[in-house]
Structure formats: C-alpha cells, structure tokens
Nucleic acid binder design. Sequence first.
DNA 1: GTCTATAATACGATAGAC
DNA 2: GTCTATCGTATTATAGAC
Lengths: 197, 197
Amino acid sequence: MLDDRSRKTAPERRESILRAAAEVFGRHGYVGATTDQIAKAAGISQPYVVRLFGSKEALFLAVLRSAKDELLADFRAGLAEARAAGSGIEGTLASLGDRYVELARQRGVHLSLLQAFVQGADPVIGAAARAGYLEIWRFLREEADLTVELAKDFLGQGMLLSVLLSVDMPVLDGDADAHELLIAVCGPKLPLLIEST
Amino acid sequence: MLDDRSRKTAPERRESILRAAAEVFGRHGYVGATTDQIAKAAGISQPYVVRLFGSKEALFLAVLRSAKDELLADFRAGLAEARAAGSGIEGTLASLGDRYVELARQRGVHLSLLQAFVQGADPVIGAAARAGYLEIWRFLREEADLTVELAKDFLGQGMLLSVLLSVDMPVLDGDADAHELLIAVCGPKLPLLIEST
DNA sequence: GTCTATAATACGATAGAC
DNA sequence: GTCTATCGTATTATAGAC
C-alpha cells in the first residue's frame, strides 16, 4: 500500500496523496480519517500531506472534486460508447450502469463520494457535496437525456450499490441473504467486487 | 432543542439521550458527533451521557438498534395496513414507501442509519450495521414477500432519499434542478421534508 | 521536496461530590 | 440521578532544518 519513498515533483506527489486519501477518507469518513493515516498510505510524513494541500478540509475537497470528475468522465465514455453502438435508452442505461459498477473496483471513488454526501451539515463540504450531486443529476438529465423517472431509478441503484460497498457487504458474501442482495444489485459483475482491495 | 432540566428516571433519561443522539449522529456522523453536542441537545452534562451508556460507541450502537427497530416497526404497520386494504403488490410498495418518506420528518432515524452504514470499516459498528441492513432486506423479501427485483428497486429509492436528506438537498429547494430531483423522489410529499427541522 | 519536533486544541472518559 | 473538575490521548497544523 505504500508508495515509493523517492523524491517526486509536487504534482506527482499530489496525485499519489489524492489516490491514498480517496481510499482512507472513503473507509473512515471525513472526520474519522486522519491525515497521518493518509500520509502512511502515501508513504510520506503527516506534515507534508498538510503542507501540500493546506489543510485536511482542502484535501477532502480536492478528493471530492477528483472523484466526481472521474465518475463523470467514465459516464461520458459510457454514453459515447452507447451512442456509437446506436443503442437506445436501454443500451444507454446498461452502459452507464456498467461503468458505475466497474468504477467500484478501486473503492476510493464511490466511497469518498458517499462520505462527502453524508457531510451535508458541514458548511463548506456540504455545499460542495450538493453542487457535485447536482452536476451528476444534470449529466443524467441533460447529457444522457434520461427522463426524470429513469434518471431517478438509475440514481437509486447507484446509491444502493454505494451504500452496500460502504457498509462492506461484500465481506459477508458467504451469507445467503447478503449474496442474494449483492447479486441483485451487481448482477454477474459481482465477482469483481469481492476480490478487489 | 433542549430537553427539560428536571430529574428523570434513568430509562426516561436514556430515551431523551437516544433521541438527541440520533439527530446529532445523523448530522455529523459517528466520529464527527461529540458526546458534548449530544449532551447539550439533551440538556444534560457530557459525562452523564457517557455514564449512562458506558461509551460513545455503546451509545451509537443503541441509536443504530433503535433506529432500525423504528423503521421496521413502521414498515410492519404499513404492511398490515396494505393487507387489511386488500391491495396487491403495487399497494404494498406504495404503503411501505409512504412510511419511509414520513419517517423522514424526524431526520434522526434515516440519517443515523446511513451514518452507521457508512462506517463499515469499523470492526464493531460495521458488523452491527451489516446485520441491521440484512434484517431490513429480509423483511422486504420474507415478510413483505417482494421479489428480489422489487425489493432491490424499493431499497434503491430508499437509499436515494436517505442520501438526499444526508447531503441536505432540501436546503437547495429553490434551485430548479434540486427541486426536480426532490420531487422525483418524494412526489407530492416533498413539502413534508422542507419545513421539518 | 521532505522531514523532525512540537505547539495548540478538542475530545472521551474517570473520579468524586452532592 | 446528575454535576464539576480534570486527566490522558489523539490529531491538525506550524516552525524550521536539511
């Protein structure tokens, strides 16, 4: 889990911290995650994490923005693919859904997004989280051209998968009920989510 | 928001703490909420909160159990009502959905549940959260007799509403996109969620 | 570009009085 | 049944060296 310890340029270092922070924030939440855990996961010292981003809050905002951008980029790729294949609404939904499930392989993106959403009471993080959420909604409605009804159902399945990842339901895959639930949400792609770190 | 300051029996006091804690944990999360915030919301001293429940963790587990039990009780009432009315699957789903939305009036239940789900990495809280989640799944499948597909879709809409409450989307009700999204999820019951504390 | 040392604070928990 | 006082610890952030 440790990155290398050699010197890097600041932008490179920011990138590795961002990746490490997405995982740690994703698992422990904005308040629960410590800058020291993030530093260790990135293979550097705690003060340096703070130095490069200014504050824990600024780092979390950077993680939020980056996760949301990654999700939207993947959605746009899926949308382009569906349109190139000439598939209709059904195909578009399937393509977007596939991207969403596949993004779950690096847990960081979905988990840190949900941890941001759950922080609505924080004046600055809450505001950023709401803005990000609406960006995603606008993508579904305007770019992907989904009806309100379809966009809402799609989002619901997304939130369900995110919550299941967050509660770490895959660790209970042995349990019959847990397995039924996971299969219902992920379909045949479930194995993807069991093994990944 | 303060409860009264008179003496109470221990069980009564535990009840008011539980209600206050559900709100505070719901808004700030397990780690972010402080026992002092909870104490102030309940109108007592911080050490007394700890004294009555043993630890912050024990208090959170009590909140989780109580929230889950309230949700299941409401679901059971809705199910009984639907069956008494002789409605089919559609009516059952509508009845359960209504209960879910109405439970959102006291934010505590949905918010603290989601904050528990998001704590999957914590050995003890995560385990309790997973067990609670599966209890709800089993209710939908076995007691309410929903198919896997219907239960999954119902749960998805529930998670979507919970996340929207958690990110505090109702504060943006003026925004056209936010309003469209909220109306899609809550239907005509939306006003219920805007005014409530 | 990165570290060590440390200051400053906030928080959960305990002790003990009333 | 409930409070005040306080200890011990964990954590963010800063200062300054290399």
